[in-house]
Amino acid sequence: MQKIWYTFYKGLFEMNPIFKLALSLCPALAVTSTVVNAFAMGIAVTFVLTMNNIVVSIFRNYVNPKVRVPVYITSIATIVTVTQLVLEAYFPAIFQALGIYLALVVVFAIILARAEVFASKNNVFYSALDGFGMGIGFMIAMLLIGSIRELFGSGTLAGISVMPDMYNPALIMILPPGAFLLIGILIGMFNLIGQYQDKAKEEKMQNERMQKLALQRGE
């Protein structure tokens, strides 16, 4: 049970694709100027990651290791084409907004990396879970960046005005430079939190060791 939970959970924070692994950064900057776009991109990537992990895992024993990368690429390209067609048919506005970045999901490093590192070695259930967890972690990061950018850049959240009227939107947050600055600061914050956690863990371990030592001496 713990292993199942961990397979899913590690993608959320511990190995967050954007902040920790620093993979697939292009969409994190390009389509996060509004929350809705960020959410749509997150859904699309989660779907592709999960489906691709399942496909790769099913065929993991039949694919010759020498040709594995072309096989993975073909599988990813097929799934992405399906996603594109579905979005174009049912959500044309979102399809327009995501534009070229939806086609670029094909070459996201995170999808190929999960297929290579995880799905080619594990069974279907764990692979699907791993892809889903990673996708959700990606979506959380996208939503975080998207909401900050939209809030400060145009004073709205998912299209609803939330800032007081006197607030003057900082246009730079919507523009490309703001995206770079914001992600830089967010990575710094993630690292800072990670440092505190490490320190706390170390202190806790040290305390336990001291207690054990004291117990031994007492006996």
Binding site: F180, L181, G184, I187, G188, N191, Q195
Partner: peptide, 14 residues
């Protein structure tokens, strides 16, 4: 310290 590496690189790119 927390900005070392990737963090400062992003701010620079900004």
């Amino acid at each position: 310290k927390p900005l070392e590496g990737l963090g400062i690189a992003f701010i620079l790119a900004g």
